[in-house]
C-alpha cells in the first residue's frame, strides 16, 4: 500500500515534469525572448541611469565621478546609496520581466488558449510591475535569513587553496543550509502562480501555505527533483569553483547558469503553475477571469 502511494506521488512528479517540459517545448520562443528582453532591460536601465548620472556630474562642478563610482569604502555615503538605488531599480525591472514567465505559464495552462506569446509578457508586466519584483526581493530576503547564504566559510576572492578548511562540520553546515533553502523555497514558490491568478499579496502567501499543507509529499517530491536537477549542481559547482579556483569549474558553473536560465526558470514557472492548478487545496475565488 505504502509502495503504491510512493509510486503514485512520484508518478505525479513525473507528470508535473512531463507536462511542463512539453509546454516549454511548444512555447519555447515566448519564454526565451522574455528572458532575453529581461536581460536587455536590465542592461539598458544601468546604461540610462549611468548616463543620467554622468550628465548630473558634468553639471555640478563640486561633485566628481569618483563620488559615485569609486571604491565603496572610500565613500560609503553617496556611493553606497547610489549603487544600491541603481541596482535596485535595474534588478526590479529585470525581475518584473523575468517573472512575467509566470504569466506565460498562466496563459498556457489556465487561460484556455494553451499557448503563450512574447507580447503577453507586456500584459503581465503592466499588471504586476511592482508585485513580481517586490515578491522576489521578499523571497530573497527570507531565503537569505533562513539559509544564511550557501557558501563555504573562509572562501571568497583571494589566493586559491589558502585559508579554507573544508572539514566535516562545514559539509554538514552547507547541506543544512541547502535544506533550509529548500524548505523556504517550497513554502513560498507557489506565491507566484497564486499572485498571477489572484492579484493579491496576502492571498498568494495564504494559498502557498495551503498548498504545501495539503500536499506535502507531492510538493517535496516534485520540487526535490527540481532541486536535484537545477539547483544542487550549480550550488556544488559554485562552492567547488570558489574552493579550488580551477578555470574549468568556473566554465562549468557558467554553462550550468545559462542552462538554468534557459530551461530551469521557465520549467519552474510551468511546474509551479501546474501544481497550483492541479493540487487540491482551499482556493480563493480568482479575480482574474480564467
Amino acid at each position: 500500500m505504502q509502495t503504491n502511494k510512493k509510486s503514485s506521488t512520484f508518478s505525479e512528479t513525473k507528470k508535473d515534469f512531463r507536462i511542463a517540459w512539453q509546454s516549454l517545448k511548444d512555447n519555447f520562443k515566448a519564454f526565451l525572448v522574455t528572458e532575453i528582453f529581461a536581460v536587455l532591460a536590465f542592461i539598458l536601465t544601468l546604461i540610462v541611469l549611468g548616463s543620467i548620472l554622468i550628465v548630473i556630474i558634468s553639471l555640478i562642478p563640486s561633485v566628481s565621478l569618483s563620488d559615485f563610482f569609486g571604491r565603496f569604502s572610500d565613500n560609503i555615503g553617496i556611493s553606497g546609496i547610489f549603487r544600491m538605488l541603481i541596482g535596485l531599480i535595474a534588478f526590479a525591472i529585470f525581475f518584473a520581466f523575468l517573472n512575467c514567465q509566470h504569466g506565460l505559464a498562466y496563459n498556457i495552462m489556465s487561460s484556455g488558449e494553451m499557448f503563450a506569446e512574447f507580447k503577453n509578457s507586456f500584459t503581465y508586466f503592466k499588471r504586476f510591475w511592482w508585485q513580481y519584483p517586490l515578491l522576489t526581493f521578499a523571497l530573497f530576503i527570507i531565503n537569505g535569513i533562513v539559509s544564511g547564504g550557501i557558501r563555504i566559510e573562509g572562501s571568497g576572492p583571494g589566493p586559491i587553496f589558502h585559508d579554507i578548511s573544508f572539514d566535516f562540520i562545514q559539509i554538514v553546515l552547507t547541506f543544512g543550509r541547502i535544506i533550509l533553502f529548500f524548505i523556504s523555497f517550497i513554502l513560498f514558490i507557489h506565491t507566484f502562480p497564486s499572485l498571477t491568478s489572484q492579484e493579491k499579496f496576502k492571498r498568494s502567501f495564504i494559498e502557498s501555505f495551503r498548498i504545501i499543507k495539503s500536499n506535502p509529499k507531492r510538493i517535496i517530491s516534485t520540487w526535490g527533483t527540481y532541486f536535484l536537477i537545477f539547483i544542487v549542481p550549480i550550488i556544488a559547482l559554485g562552492i567547488l569553483a570558489e574552493i579550488y579556483g580551477f578555470i574549468f569549474l568556473y566554465i562549468l558553473f557558467g554553462i550550468d547558469f545559462i542552462l538554468i536560465t534557459i530551461f530551469g526558470f521557465p520549467m519552474l514557472t510551468l511546474i509551479a503553475r501546474g501544481i497550483y492548478n492541479n493540487v487540491e487545496f482551499q482556493r480563493f475565488k480568482p479575480d482574474l477571469e480564467e
Partner: peptide, 12 residues
C-alpha cells in the same frame, strides 16, 4: 465550451 483536461489545463 471550456473544459479542463486530466492535468486541469483549461481548454477553450
Amino acid at each position: 465550451r471550456i473544459e479542463k483536461n486530466d492535468y486541469n489545463i483549461t481548454m477553450k
